[in-house]
Design a protein around this nucleic acid. Structure first.
Lengths: 118, 118
DNA sequence: GGCGTTGTCAACCAGATGGTTGAGCGAGGG
DNA sequence: CCCTCGCTCAACCATCTGGTTGACAACGCC
């Protein structure tokens, strides 16, 4: 296995580029060769090849062999790593919001009615 | 509003750095000043200040004013953008797996029993 | 065997990134 | 009033990144 920190580094960095996100989006519907992938962009084939390599090293994509005609295939597993990381902290911060709301509501209750005071 | 592509670029890029992910993790449990945030790292205060700025420009974090003593606060909204992007394609690729499995199962069925054939 | 098709590798370049140090600024306390 | 505290800004540096072009390697076909 490999260091999960390193994997997250590469996965997030890979998706930080809009061209690579577009590649992922297109590969989600079907596998494709580098040539097919390169076609719509105003960019050299080599540049696209590099992008695919970055996605591959991030573990987002696999190529059956390293060789000819082998279509690029999207692999969902690393997505799980990322969503789990994000969701963990999103939920934590939302929990904090809820507690803060409760606290404020409590304070209002203390101030407004002022029944059995002090 | 702002271009969602630009926001995703910056959000993913921000989380590609392990120090910044650690900052996010710590801010999830409570707000903190830049000084507090900087303390555990073997790194200058200025460097941490820069990291916080990157998180801020990515919309992951807010600072009440630009000024003094204002604690850094984690904002969950952009997390939604990211998870929605990821989940969309993760689900798409998993749907493809399911269809592929079904197809293979179907082929097996055609070959194995060969009941009411052709 | 020779050749086109498809893709990678290598070198190069401009600009972004992550760190450093040094200077400066704004608010509060003596 | 000045000075310290907390932080940001500016300049600088090394490295990484995203693109280019040119060479070449592997396979399918004639």
């Amino acid at each position: 296995m490999e260091d999960s920190t390193e994997r997250l580094n590469r996965a997030f960095a890979a998706l930080a580029d809009p061209t690579r996100r577009d590649l992922v989006a297109r590969l989600a519907t079907s596998d494709a060769t580098v040539g097919e992938l390169a076609e719509p962009y105003d960019m050299s084939l080599q540049a696209v090849s590099k992008h695919v390599k970055v996605l591959e090293e991030a573990g987002l994509v696999t190529r059956s062999k390293d060789a000819q005609r082998r279509p690029v295939h999207l692999d969902a597993e690393v997505f799980d790593l990322m969503t789990k990381w994000i969701e963990r902290y999103r939920q934590q911060v939302e929990e904090r919001y809820r507690r803060l709301d409760a606290l404020l509501a409590d304070e209002n209750q203390q101030k407004q009615p002022r029944k059995d005071a002090s």
